[in-house]
Design a protein around this nucleic acid. Structure first.
Length: 573
RNA sequence: CGGGGCGUAGCGCAGCCUGGUAGCGCACCUGCUUUGGGAGCAGGGUGUCGGAGGUUCGAAUCCUCUCGCCCCGACCA
């Protein structure tokens, strides 16, 4: 492909709405253009990269025994009603009506459709297992799309679904997909980690996320500095610290006292006003759930982890009570709730056990209690691990490890679904004994565009993108320095044809531009191998070859170019 | 959905407060010179100033409504 022919608009300035480096560079390097919030055009160069990722995914999935299918993007509401998610999924599900006023949605994920497809055909355990996948455009009406392809509303995803007759077989496939994902992201040249994760809206039993390490990542991951435990902070468990017994310290219990705290609602305000450390405060959060109104306590310097709370309560839904419900439960405006004298069920994080002479809301406006002590002043129904992990928390899985927090971009996610969808949608089969059983399912997703974006987050410099060879839109970038020089152009054309005949993807900048312009565009676009044809090297029957990621330039005889480039490309980096 | 901000040339922005008939840099077009890291000179403006309505002799500028986009938050008392 030649620059003069390709539709490749590069930009010196990035549009002001591009925040993160991958978004800026994708726009500047002419890979994508925005159509609407979270919705993008893929330009030729961008599509090439997308295709590279897709093909790696496709090859590895096929190798792992999965089969490619394609399902519709527009899905009738009935299937979603059957699974119950039409009600549950919320506003992210873009609902549309056809001309007959029938409800449809744009598929954000395809558990319902695939389950419907499989249940229609599979009757016997002999037809199992199955692993079907597609690479397709999804739509999720995200609250706040951002960061270009990183969190779009419309995005390309590989989603795979497996069906099994037994738990063991499903577990085996889960491991198979886990291993496959590791191979895929390794082939993409990414630094990543697989971490334990929450299952979220997809549901299911357990899951792992594949996180590309990047400071701009939207997720935080806790990982042990001693053992191989790693989990999304949403999920990460904490070894309860201390003995769990109050009063170990030298401090004596003081009498309970009510103090005036006009307008002081937040932990910062109260601790600042009373001149104490936030860890002395007991934060009281009033929740509404299917288990009734709950008061949940965490230490002032900690954050509640609702996923943990939900699990500990065994609740199926849970949300923070609104102002009115808070008043009803505590007789006070929000901001002044506390466990003392509270009638509702109280659940607390382990860390509450060790607070001596704590501070809580007094369940009346503009007042807090100080010197609050567990058991003497209030009772807790259940203790549990309820809070978000922070750096240096102790690892639950090993003896003396501490947790570190790093940021990551979620590029893949594997779920063991179990029978959530097969039961709801009646996807059954007959086993050897002729018994009717629900199929055991798994599902496995990879964000294609996000993987490309994540690669840029990890591989760039101030000049532009530095593609790893497997994702690069072209293998080599050929630059004839002066298109009006006959000797240079003859050589460049010869090298171009020679490399193409060798099966390589070659990009030639045949524009009548100055050297600086071409070099800068080359650095921006980030093709791994740069070959420069100029008069200096030509005198020695040579061209210059430079790797995008390296600084050094080497001369190479024109006759040896093909061999050299093939060598670099096949070495994979 | 709540708060804040922005919408002026393809991109980045100024002008708006204090109304007077639209500008800067880059890009783009023409010509000449130049040609190894974003060239120089000369010429060219490519715009419903997001849209609609209003105030006014006169609106990019003031007012109202509306649309779009961006940022922060959106359960953290």
């Amino acid at each position: 492909m030649k620059f003069s022919k390709i539709f490749l608009p590069t930009l010196k300035d990035a549009p002001s709405d591009a925040e993160v480096v991958s978004h800026r560079l994708m726009v500047r390097a002419g890979l994508i253009r925005k159509v609407a919030s979270g919705i993008y055009n893929y330009l030729p160069l961008g599509l090439r990269v997308i295709r590279k990722v897709e093909n790696i995914v496709r090859e590895e999935m096929n190798k792992a025994g999965a089969q490619e299918v394609s399902m519709p993007m527009v899905v009738p509401s009935e299937l979603w009603q059957e699974s119950g998610r039409w009600e549950v999924y919320g506003k992210e599900l873009l609902r549309i009506k056809d001309r007959h006023e029938r409800d449809f949605c744009l598929g954000p994920t395809h558990e319902e459709i695939i389950t419907d497809m499989v249940r229609g055909e599979v009757r016997s355990y002999r037809q199992l297992p199955l692993n079907l996948y597609q690479i397709q455009t999804k739509f999720r009406d995200e609250i706040r799309p951002r960061f270009g392809l990183m969190r779009g509303r419309e995005f390309i995803m590989k989603d795979a679904y497996s069906f099994h007759a037994t738990e063991e077989d499903a577990d085996k496939e889960y491991q198979n997909m886990y291993d496959t994902y590791c191979r895929i992201f390794e082939r993409c040249g990414l630094k990543f980690r697989a971490v334990e994760a929450e299952t979220g809206a997809i549901g299911g039993r357990f899951s792992h996320e594949f996180m590309v390490l990047a400071d701009t990542g939207e997720d935080a991951v806790a990982s042990c500095n001693k053992c191989n435990y790693a989990a999304n902070v949403e999920r990460a468990e904490i070894k309860s610290q201390g003995s769990g017994v109050r009063g170990q310290g030298s401090e004596k219990d003081k009498p309970l006292e009510k103090v005036s705290t006009p307008g002081m609602k937040t932990v910062e305000e109260v601790s600042g006003f009373l001149k104490t450390a936030p860890e002395r405060l007991i934060k009281t959060l009033i929740y509404n759930s299917d288990k009734g109104i709950i008061a949940a306590l965490v230490r002032g310097d900690h954050e509640m982890n609702e996923a943990k709370l939900k699990r500990t309560l065994d609740a199926s839904w849970l949300n923070l009570a609104d102002e009115e419900a808070v008043r009803k439960a505590t007789n006070a405006p929000s901001g002044f709730a506390g466990p003392v004298g509270l009638k509702t069920k109280i659940i607390a994080d382990y860390s509450i056990q060790t607070i001596i002479n704590g501070i809580t809301g007094a369940n009346e406006a503009d007042a807090h209690f100080i010197n609050v002590n567990l058991d003497r002043d209030f009772k807790v129904g259940t203790f549990g691990d309820l809070r978000m992990v922070v750096a240096d928390d102790l690892c639950l899985r090993c003896a003396d490890g501490k947790l570190e927090i790093f940021r990551g971009i979620e590029v893949g996610h594997v779920f063991k679904l179990g029978t959530k969808y097969s039961e709801a949608m009646n996807a059954t089969f007959l086993n050897e004994k002729g018994e009717e059983k629900s199929m055991i399912m798994g599902c496995y997703g990879i964000g294609i565009g996000r993987t490309a974006a994540a690669s840029i987050e990890q591989n760039h410099d101030e000049k532009g993108i530095i593609w790893p060879m497997p994702l690069a839109p072209f293998h080599a970038h050929l630059i004839p320095l002066n298109v009006n020089d006959k000797a240079i152009m003859t050589t460049a054309e010869a090298v171009y044809k020679n490399l193409i005949n060798a099966g390589l993807d070659v990009f030639m900048d045949d524009r009548d531009e100055r050297a600086g312009t071409k070099f800068n565009d080359a650095d921006l676009i980030g093709i791994p191998i740069r070959i420069t044809v100029g008069s200096k090297a030509l005198k020695e029957s040579s061209v210059e070859i430079k790797m995008r990621k390296a600084a050094d330039v080497s001369l190479i005889k024109i006759d040896d170019v093909k061999k050299k480039v093939l060598e670099i490309v096949s070495s994979g980096r």
